[in-house]
């Protein structure tokens, strides 16, 4: 039997009503991410790319269409600990230390954080926050907070990893470092990843496929395959072939 797609959206539509106006956030979005693949969604602000992710996560319900995560309904997948998530804002609990923030998904899933202390520590080490385990979010820089959010997303060994602009607050140098790191981590876990981003080079570097979205109404305008071998190394960022793919994404973004 074929393994179900990591993420499968079929004909998903969504409208919002706010302040008396009806906004068509998504129209007929169909997207399938094969198991173990890395997909990026890129598009202008307000094109509904975050809404795609929120619907896939079960935080919003679609007006029409079908959503499956690892072959199951979103919230069922979530309750089994299949998904991991990092939001564009770190969304840490300000009163919890770094370690206790990373433990949040374990607590929600009803697992015992103490039994998985080694995994929690490993994730903190992985994102380079060794020595900050007991710091509060208010004492950390923006980049460090975002790395806590990444550690938190990975702590459950997710089969499907959702990331909504996880590096949006980081500087370019750190961002590239984190991209390389993320690729390594993702390759280790073998998870299906969906990344929502504004960064063209980030999307191209990390992904097997880049999905380009347009706004009003939010829809998929094109899908660009990225052929480079893995693991991809930092020199790829300056490769002319890499820039060619980036240019194709930019063209798709601008509607050519």
């Amino acid at each position: 039997m074929r393994q179900p797609d990591g993420i499968a959206l079929t004909g998903v539509s969504k409208t919002f009503t706010g302040r008396g106006k009806v906004v068509e956030a998504l129209r007929e979005v169909t997207l399938a991410c094969p198991p173990g693949s890395f997909t990026s969604i890129i598009g202008p602000s307000g094109c509904g790319k975050s809404t795609v992710m929120r619907i896939a996560l079960g935080l919003e319900t679609a007006d029409a269409g079908e959503v499956r995560v690892a072959g199951q309904r979103s919230l069922e997948a979530a309750r089994q600990g299949i998904t991991g998530v990092a939001f564009q804002d770190a969304a840490l609990l300000p009163w919890r230390s770094v370690r206790r923030n990373v433990e949040v998904p374990l607590e929600v899933l009803g697992r015992t954080p103490r039994a998985e202390a080694a995994q929690v520590q490993a994730m903190i080490d992985l994102v380079g926050l060794k020595g900050y385990e007991n710091s509060l979010p208010g004492e950390l820089s923006g980049g460090m907070r975002q790395r806590v959010a990444i550690a938190r997303a990975l702590v459950t060994h997710p089969q499907v990893l959702f990331m909504d602009e996880p590096f949006g607050a980081l500087d370019q140098i750190l961002r590239r470092q984190m991209n390389v790191e993320l690729q390594r981590i993702w390759a280790d876990t073998g998870s299906t990843a969906l990344l929502v981003t504004h960064g063209i080079d980030e999307a191209v570097f990390l992904s097997d496929r880049v999905v380009v979205m347009h706004a009003n109404p939010g829809r998929i305008a094109g899908v660009i395959d990225v052929p480079f071998d893995r693991p991809r190394q930092p020199p790829l960022f300056s490769d002319p072939a890499f820039h060619k793919v980036c240019d194709r994404v930019a063209e798709a973004l601008h509607g050519n």
């Binding site: 309750r79 969304a91 949040v104």
Partner: peptide, 27 residues
């Protein structure tokens, strides 16, 4: 309470009560 932090808990299938316990009550 911080609605983004609530989203994180809900995204892991946290119930209304879990959101209350982990995010809202301490907040």
């Amino acid at each position: 309470a911080d609605s983004r932090a609530e989203d994180v808990v809900r995204a892991y299938g946290g119930s209304r009560w879990t959101v209350l316990r982990l995010v809202q009550f301490r907040g």
